[in-house]
Amino acid sequence: MTDRVNDRSLEKYRRMQRIRQFEDQAEAIHAAGEIPGALHTYAGQEASGVGACMALRTDDYMVGTHRSHGHPIAKGAKLRPLMAELLGKATGICKGKGGSMHLSDFSVGSLGETSIVGSGIPVAVGAALGCKMQGLDRVSLCFFGDGATNEGAWHEGMNLAAVWKLPVIFLCENNGYAVSTPAHAALPVKDVAERAAAYAMPSAIVDGQDVDAVEIEVAKAVERARTGGGPTLVETKTYRYADHAVNMGRILLDRGDEVDVWRKRDPLTLYRARLIERGIDDALIDAIERETADEVADALAFARSSPYPEQAEAFDDVLVDRLPIPTHLAA
């Protein structure tokens, strides 16, 4: 039993390390101009994503947000195709057409993310409805931020899931800001979880920097959903270290010493200390960190050496039949 517990604990640490090191590398190469477009990083919120996804089965569904790298990694996605997608390469998880904010990996149940705030909620609810109609015991987990709870799609999704008792877990990663707007300036309630009462839905608030606490709380919601009890709203109190989008300059936001305060409760630092308290050797933890660094470096090398999509592929996976590229536009 102890070995199994330790294996699970080490897997949580491994996934959090994958996210942190992937994000650090992505931020560095974005600053160097290798990644086109905006980049929204997940550093600081690792325990929220990993804890939640560890409560799922591989065949359960998950929908992420525009802060999208952390969620598929938390669900167990491989790093090579994710990094290749950020660089717009043909070997990317979406063949280089999605980029940083549009990642999906059906092999681990990750249905994808989009850049539209709140847009994943109807997708997650639809996946849950499909599971119920097919008599499957799968559940659907939907990540979103505090800002998304002011979107109509969020309220519609919550209402429909509650009325039809769908197997969906609504997970609000409340990091305190919607772009640069503090949550307290846009929400009339102190906690997003209070809003569940309007839909006769159970809710919970959990420390989003504690991966074990998140897993325990989400596991309760998963069990409820899987056994026909309907949806649950779980709010994790967490924090993103970087600005809304990195390397783009501050967007009317001065957080003062807030970041330093939250870094004192860094989820990786906290969990490393907990692993040591549980008797896990420092050397084993160090090995996971080194192995993860090698894995991220391998993913970057793979992405850099991969080809870009061909021009003729522009409409593939968009329309049923491939459209010809007009002659005057062809290279």
Rank of each mutant, 00 (worst) to 15 (best):
S100K: 06
G109T: 01
V117M: 00
A124K: 13
S104H: 12
G120R: 07
G112Y: 10
L111A: 14
H102Y: 12
G99C: 11
G135N: 10
L103R: 10
K97E: 02
Q134F: 00
V123H: 15
G112K: 12
S100N: 06
T114I: 08
G109W: 08
D105E: 02
A127N: 08
S110I: 04
C131R: 01
G99N: 14
S104L: 14
T114V: 07
G99L: 09
V125N: 06
G126I: 07
C131V: 05
G135H: 04
G126D: 05
C131L: 00
M133P: 00
G126W: 01
L129K: 13
S110G: 01
S110L: 06
V117H: 00
G126A: 12
S119T: 08
G135Y: 10
Q134G: 02
S119M: 01
F106K: 15
G118R: 01
A124M: 08
Q134E: 07
L129D: 11
G118A: 05
G98E: 13
H102N: 13
G118P: 03
G130F: 01
S107T: 15
P122S: 07
I116G: 06
G130Q: 05
S119W: 00
L111I: 14
G112F: 13
E113I: 00
G99A: 15
G120A: 12
V117E: 04
A124L: 12
A124C: 06
M133E: 04
G109S: 07
I116K: 03
G112L: 13
A124I: 04
H102K: 06
S119Q: 14
K97F: 07
I121G: 04
Q134S: 10
V125R: 02
E113Y: 04
T114F: 01
A124E: 10
A127K: 03
L129N: 04
G98V: 13
S107A: 14
S107L: 04
P122I: 12
E113M: 03
D105P: 02
S115N: 15
S100L: 01
K132H: 03
S119A: 15
L129A: 14
F106Y: 15
M133K: 10
H102Q: 08
K132T: 02
V108D: 09
G126Q: 07
A127D: 09
V117C: 08
C131I: 00
V123G: 09
V108Q: 03
G135F: 06
K97H: 11
V123Q: 14
G112P: 07
G98Y: 09
G109R: 05
G135T: 07
S104A: 13
M133F: 05
V117T: 02
